[in-house]
Amino acid sequence: MDKEALIAELKEIIKPYVQDQEAFGNLTEDTHFITDLKINSANLVDIVLDTEDKYNIEIDNDSMDKMSDVKSAMGVIEEKIAAKG
């Protein structure tokens, strides 16, 4: 999947949980879920679960620990999809 398409899909996943809409409007790969988008930590769990559902992947603790910003979340998704083969 190309990067633009993946960012667009990820934005759909995180949109319901974003509290800072302005930061969401300016989203880049470096945007941090908690410090920039003000997503609360319980909703970070929702994002992980929604991502699992959408791509039919399992995100373990190690991968969840990496999912702090857009870029790292994309990395986790790509890695898990590739691992499915």
């Binding site: 319980a42 909703n43 769990v45 929702d46 992980v48 679960l49 699992e52 969840m64």
Partner: peptide
Amino acid sequence: KSTNYQRRGFLAKV
């Protein structure tokens, strides 16, 4: 309002 802890998988993740 903001979090449904009863959704599938939530408790096991947390």
